[in-house]
């Protein structure tokens, strides 16, 4: 069945809500309106106002409420409209949600998912375009998922909802309309299992979210030049599938990380550092980072494009490595 990424996300929630009546969703404009991307459309009608609620623009309060509800036996799957605004409730997420179980004891479980739309989307500018996975990777206790396609989004979200740990679930805005094959039958995807999106033998490209598609484009172009690129999609950043990376670089001996976030202190910095600490012997050269420029994302579309890696930039960077 060919579905859009947006539909896959909505279907994952609906299927889980039919399975388990402890699950509820709330967030800004998700009820009648069905969220600004239409993802939660039909949910209010199917599950009623008790399980599908609009919140006021009060991120600190409704993230706090999600936490209290999760502690006491519900399984909230809340929507924080844009990842950018997760910072408004950053202390709640970074300090409370992540650390709660550790600081209060094992009986405290937090089956809680925070879904956010993220990433650049043509002139959305500096406060509506951020990819913030690296911030949440930095707080032990959180799980972090950043799917690149409809199939992974659905399987990972169902897994996230079933997990007793809090999950930050990022959905790239530019992916919402992309279509992918999704089976009719039920499936979930475990966290911490990377997926090789294209096999290759010359270089490993670890790409995240929207960048997976661009890395695949680059790989396609390079194949014509006789360069064989392996594209590895970690799918979840916490936990991170180090073994899959090790298997890949033990074959290619060269690695690159591509992310949409700006370079400094980004996901690529972490992965590159980890690889040189733990897989140095496998590497024939430094791990290369391809990332956005260190600027607030400009409004001007040409400059926005310039700031974020595209397939050509990725291909050019790969050529330099060989």
């Amino acid at each position: 069945m060919l579905v859009t990424f947006a539909q896959a996300v909505g279907d994952a929630m609906k299927e889980e809500m039919r399975r388990d009546d402890r699950i509820l969703v709330f967030g800004e404009d998700i009820a009648e309106f069905g969220n600004i991307f239409g993802i939660t459309r039909g949910m209010l009608e199917e599950f009623g106002p008790k399980r599908v609620r609009n919140t006021p623009i009060s991120e600190m309060a409704f993230i706090g409420a999600a936490m209290g509800a999760a502690e006491t036996g519900l399984r909230p799957c809340v929507e924080l409209m844009y990842a950018d605004f997760s910072l408004v409730a950053f202390a709640e997420i970074y300090h409370c949600i992540a650390k709660w179980r550790y600081m209060h004891g094992p009986e405290y479980k937090l089956p809680l998912v925070i879904r956010s739309a993220m990433g650049s989307s043509f002139g959305a500018t500096g406060e509506h375009s951020n990819c913030l996975e690296s911030l949440y990777m930095h707080s032990p206790g959180l799980l972090v998922a950043s799917p690149s396609n409809a199939y992974d989004a659905k399987g990972l979200l169902k897994e996230a909802i079933r997990n007793d740990n809090p999950v930050m679930f990022f959905e790239h805005k530019q992916l919402y309309k992309t279509k992918g094959e999704v089976p009719e039958e039920e499936y979930t995807i475990p966290f911490g299992v990377a997926d090789i999106k294209r096999e290759g033998s010359d270089v490993t490209v670890i790409a995240i979210g929207l960048m997976v598609g661009r890395a695949l484009e680059a790989a396609e172009a390079l194949a014509k030049e006789g360069v064989s690129v392996e594209v590895l999609d970690p799918r979840t950043l916490v936990p991170f599938d180090k073994e899959a990376v090790r298997r890949s670089v033990s074959k290619t001996h060269r690695a690159m990380v591509v992310e949409e976030s700006n370079k400094t202190s980004g996901v690529g910095a972490e992965i590159a550092a980890m690889m040189q600490e733990e897989m140095y012997d496998e590497l024939d050269g430094p791990v290369v980072r391809v990332a956005a420029l260190d600027v607030p994302l400009p409004y001007n579309i040409e400059l926005e494009k310039y700031a974020i890696p595209d397939a050509e930039q990725i291909a050019a960077a790969i050529r330099k490595m060989l």
Binding site: F62, G68, E71, T72, L74, P76, E92
Partner: peptide
């Protein structure tokens, strides 16, 4: 806000 969440439950 936790109390609100518990109250929701």
């Amino acid at each position: 806000g936790l109390a609100g969440g518990a109250a929701m439950r």
